[in-house]
Nucleic acid binder design. Structure first.
Lengths: 235, 235
DNA sequence: CGACAAAAAATTGTTGACAGTTTACCAAAA
DNA sequence: TTTTGGTAAACTGTCAACAATTTTTTGTCG
C-alpha cells in the first residue's frame, strides 16, 4: 500500500541494486523529467548538457534515449538528436481509443474470472471514491481512482495486457491529457466505475466490456472538454 | 536483385540512407538474426564478437540492444549482458491471450467502420486462401494469411492498436510458436477467417469481436498441439 | 537593409581504451 | 574423485576523444 505510492515515479533502493547500470538510472531520470515538465514536448535532448548535469558520459545517455525511443516516449531524428515526443491531438485520440479497447478487454477478462473477495475489494474502492467525490477533492480522489484501475489490471489475469494498459495510461499521462476534473465530473466518473463493478460482479463479460470501454471513451471526451475550456479561459 | 547479394549483412541501401545511424541498422540486423535463428533463445549476445562481425564498435551494439530490451525482445542482466529473451510456456500463453484480445478489438472496430470495397478485398483474400488451403501448401498460404491479418490491422482505424497487435504477433513469431500447420488445419483456420469477414460485413461488432478472439485462441491451441506432437515425435 | 556564402561553433555519431565484474581454468588438498 | 582456492581470461560498464554533420555566426555583395 504505502510502497505503491512510493514507487510510482522513482525506484526503490532494491531496484537500484538490481540494475545499477547507469543507463537504467538515466532512463528513469529522463522519464521523470518528461513527466514533471522539465522537458517540454518537442524539445531536443542535448546529450552533452544532460551528461554534464547528471555527471555521466554520453554513452549511458544515448542508451537510455534509445530505450525510451523504443518505448515511444522519445523520437529520434538522424543527425539531429533525440526529441521529447509530442502527441498531436489526433494521435492522442488514437492512443485513447486503443486504451479504451484494452481497458475494456481487461474488464471483460475480470468478469470471466473474478472471485468474491475481489468483488468486495472493488466495491470498497468505489465506495471510498463516492465519499471523496462528495467533497470534490480531486487530489484525494485521484489516487484511489488510479488504484481502482491498477486493481482491475492486476485482476484481469494477463500480465501482458496489464502492462500494455499501464504503458498507454502513462503515455497519455505524460502528455498532460489528464482530466482536471471538478466535483460533478468525479461523480459521473464514479458512476461508471460502479457500472463496471456491477458488470464484473454479475460475471457478465459483454456488459463489463461495454462498461469499461464507455468509461475510457467518456473520460477522454471529458478530458478534451476540460482542455478546450481551459484553453479558452486562458486566451 | 543483384544488389542484394552485395549487401552481405542484409539491409537495403534505402534503409541505410533513411536512418544512417549504425545503431538503427544494427538493431534491425539483430532482430533479423533472432528471427532467423542465428541466435537461440536465452543465448547471450556477445558484444565484442557481434561488433567484430558487423564491423562496428560496441557503442551502436549497446544502443540497439537497449532498444530491443525496451521492446521486450531482449533481456538485460546487469554485469552479465544482453540475452535473447525466451518466453516460457506460461508467458507465451499470456502474450497469446493479449494478442487475442487486441485482435478481437481490431475486428470489432473494423466492423464499426468498414466500407464495401474493403469487404470485397477481405473476401478476395479469404477466397485465395481457400484455394491455397486445398493444395495444402503452407508456404503459399502463410503470406496471404499474414496479409489478411495486416489488412485488418490497417482497416481498424487505430494506428496504435495495429502497432501493438503487430508487435505481439512478431514477438510470438520470433519465439517460434508459429503454427506448423498441415492441410486440414489450414481449412479450419480459413473457416474462421470467413466467420470474421461475415461478421464485419454484417457490421456486427459483437460478432466480429467474438470471431476475432476465437480465431486467435483457436490458433494458439492449434499451435500448442502441433508443438506438443512435434516434441513427442522427436523424443 | 536583406540575401547569400563561407567560416566557426555546437552537436551528434562512432570509436578505442580503461576499470570493474564475472566466468573459466587449473592446481592443490580433502 | 571431488572440492576448494586462486589466478587469468573474457566480458560488460563507462568514459573521453575523434570524425562527421548540422546549426549558428559572420562577412560580403546586390
Amino acid at each position: 500500500m504505502a510502497n505503491e505510492t512510493e514507487n510510482l515515479s522513482g525506484f526503490s533502493p532494491i531496484d537500484f541494486l538490481r540494475t545499477r547500470s547507469l543507463a537504467n538510472v538515466v532512463q528513469h531520470e529522463i522519464e521523470r523529467m518528461i513527466v514533471e515538465g522539465e522537458f517540454t514536448p518537442n524539445e531536443r535532448i542535448n546529450e552533452n548538457a544532460l551528461a554534464q548535469q547528471l555527471k555521466v558520459s554520453r554513452g549511458p545517455i544515448r542508451e537510455a534515449c534509445s530505450a525510451l525511443a523504443a518505448l515511444g516516449l522519445i523520437q529520434v531524428i538522424p543527425n539531429r538528436g533525440f526529441f521529447v515526443r509530442e502527441l498531436s491531438e489526433e494521435e492522442a485520440l488514437d492512443v485513447s481509443e486503443a486504451r479504451a479497447c484494452i481497458f475494456a478487454c481487461m474488464t471483460m477478462k475480470v468478469a470471466e474470472r473474478i472471485t468474491d473477495p475481489e468483488i468486495a475489494r472493488l466495491r470498497g474502492l468505489v465506495d471510498r471514491m463516492d465519499e471523496l467525490a462528495k467533497t470534490g477533492e480531486v487530489s484525494q480522489y485521484y489516487p484511489v481512482n488510479l488504484e481502482f484501475h491498477s486493481e482491475l489490471a492486476r485482476m484481469c489475469g494477463s500480465a501482458r495486457l496489464a502492462q500494455i494498459y499501464l504503458g498507454l495510461a502513462r503515455e497519455l499521462h505524460i502528455q498532460r491529457y489528464r482530466a482536471l476534473a471538478s466535483g460533478d465530473v468525479l461523480d459521473i466518473s464514479n458512476r461508471e466505475h460502479r457500472a463496471i463493478v456491477d458488470a464484473v460482479a454479475a460475471r457478465d463479460p459483454q456488459q463489463a466490456f461495454a462498461a469499461g470501454r464507455a468509461h475510457i471513451v467518456n473520460g477522454t471526451s471529458r478530458t478534451r472538454r476540460a482542455a478546450v475550456a481551459l484553453r479558452h479561459s486562458s486566451d
